[in-house]
């Protein structure tokens, strides 16, 4: 049962990401990437890591892909994207690296017989509680550093976008907008 589900989702995920890479169509790439992200969460569910599975869906599909979708608003998504492949060396190098990674991934289990979990799963403790325990004891500092980085990014975003925050065309009267456009035309 578990094996069937694993192979089903493995094939689905691989196909989705292949579509993402191989297609010239921005909309196909976006949809396939989103679908792939959802299918990946199935592996977390299969491994019993429900919390991470749900987080995978919420963060990657709900938030990250939605930001890509925001970017897509500025393209004509119904046309093919013309890609220029000027450097075959880079493509060769990257695909070679990818192939090497795959080989490493498949041979890794050979040397992994004596692997033991650093933080073994505790019986009778919920999934999310276990994540919380590790996160707020062993990995507290990286966690806090990530929080500070997010704060910095947020402030930077506000500074970048906030220059014309008080300037709202929707709240202005007709005459004000006209006057402003006239002034701009004169300049």
């Amino acid at each position: 049962m578990e094996a069937i589900a694993f192979y089903l989702f493995a094939v689905l995920t691989t196909v989705m990401f292949l579509i993402t890479v191989l297609t010239n169509h921005a909309l196909y790439a976006l949809s396939a990437l989103a679908a792939g992200m959802i299918f990946i969460s199935a592996f977390f569910f299969l491994l019993g890591a429900d919390f991470l599975g749900a987080i995978q869906i919420i963060v990657y599909t709900g938030a990250v892909m939605a930001l890509y979708a925001f970017g897509m608003m500025f393209f004509d998504t119904t046309r093919d994207v013309v890609e220029s492949r000027t450097s075959p060396q880079i493509i060769f190098g990257l695909s070679g690296l990818a192939a090497l990674t795959v080989v490493a991934m498949f041979t890794a289990p050979i040397i992994s017989e004596n692997i033991t979990a650093l933080y073994p799963a505790i019986d009778g403790v919920g999934n999310s509680q276990m994540v919380g325990m590790v996160l707020f004891t062993k990995f507290l500092i990286p966690f806090e550093v990530a929080a500070v980085m997010l704060l910095v990014a947020m402030i930077a975003g506000i500074v970048l976008a906030g220059k014309k925050m008080d300037h709202s065309l929707t709240l202005m009267k007709e005459e004000e907008i006209e006057r402003e456009t006239n002034e701009k035309a004169q300049v």
């Binding site: 959802i38 429900d50 919390f51 987080i55 919420i58 599909t61 709900g62 939605a66 999934n127 999310s128």
Partner: peptide
């Protein structure tokens, strides 16, 4: 055991 999180996630995909 993550019911509400799952519901929120799937509804987020709905968009």
């Amino acid at each position: 055991n993550i019911g509400i999180l799952y519901i929120l996630g799937v509804m987020a995909v709905g968009f």
